[in-house]
């Protein structure tokens, strides 16, 4: 039974892994084209076009791009401020590309941090994200409640001297569930979010509300439950005095009793993981 579930999952997981890889390829391709003077809007459009050319028609959310101190969400008060602006990239500026395409019905949601030229603070932030990736996986395997894990991530950030910037996201989430999405001929977006994906999230929220869990991984009481099997797009976001850095990738949670199988990162061959492995 267990093996059947697993093999069935792997076929599905392969689909998710493919679209996640595609997204990171897109991020790297766009990042390589960024040069001084490019605006956030242009960077967002570059991501959109790159992915559309490769068959993406629907989105969990449209691509975002943040430059400079907007990577740390400095002075963000309303969600509209997340949308790309005409801020221009300058040498030494950090940037974040964040996109969530739906490809062949599979969703990915990724975040890619980089900087134009040298920025030691940014390098440090990126390096320190490694501990967060390890901490989250370890505690999910221990089946701690999502709220507790959130607080532990928070504490680690404070110890590192950083501010928690995922708190600025809607509902302050560090992660959210993602799922397969039906492919429709017409896939409209609402405030940058794909309506199909929103529908999925909303139905999860309704079901979850009945059963005492939530598709949003937040610091609030509704996240006071152990990790729910499924795919979670995890996005710890560090901020330090006007410089921000994050990664976002899919964490697979299963109901397996084997700790190693109960939770794992969907893909370990991603730019930030490779960067840590190279000891940069």
């Amino acid at each position: 039974m267990a093996s059947a579930v697993k093999s069935e999952l792997t076929a599905e997981l392969r689909g998710f892994r493919e679209v996640q890889r595609l997204s990171y390829e897109c991020a790297e391709a766009v990042a390589a084209q960024l040069k001084p003077g490019v605006t956030e809007r242009e960077a967002a459009r570059m991501q959109r076009e790159w992915l559309r050319e490769r068959g993406v028609r629907d989105w969990f959310h449209l691509p975002f791009a943040w430059f400079g101190d907007r990577t740390a969400f400095v002075n963000f008060r309303i969600p509209l401020q997340f949308f790309p602006t005409n801020r221009r990239l300058e040498p030494g500026m950090p940037f974040i590309l964040d996109m969530a395409p739906v490809h062949k019905g599979y969703t990915a949601d990724i975040g890619y941090s980089g900087c134009l030229g040298l920025n030691p603070v940014h390098d440090k932030l990126l390096a320190d994200l490694k501990d967060h990736r390890e901490l989250i996986l370890r505690e999910v395997r221990e089946r701690r409640t999502l709220r507790e894990i959130y607080e532990d991530v928070d504490r680690l950030m404070v110890r590192q001297g950083y501010a928690n910037r995922h708190r600025a996201y809607p509902f302050g989430v560090i992660a959210h569930k993602i799922d397969r999405v039906k492919e429709r001929r017409w896939s409209p977006t609402l405030f940058g979010f794909g309506t199909q994906s929103l529908k999925g999230l909303a139905s999860d929220a309704v079901h979850g509300h009945r059963d005492g869990w939530s598709p949003l991984w937040s610091p609030y009481k509704f996240s006071d439950h152990p990790p729910r099997p499924g795919l979670w797009a995890v996005e710890p976001h560090l901020g330090f005095r006007g410089t921000g850095a994050k990664f976002e990738e899919i964490l697979v949670v299963t109901d397996s009793r084997d700790p190693g199988q109960s939770a794992f990162w969907l893909d370990d061959d991603l730019p930030h993981v490779r960067r840590w492995a190279e000891g940069l």
Binding site: P120, V121, K124, R159, Q160, G161, F240, R241
Partner: peptide, 13 residues
């Protein structure tokens, strides 16, 4: 340890 961390980050910025 935390003092060290503060000093390290202070040099960075």
């Amino acid at each position: 340890e935390s003092a060290l961390r503060t000093a390290e980050m202070a040099r960075l910025i």
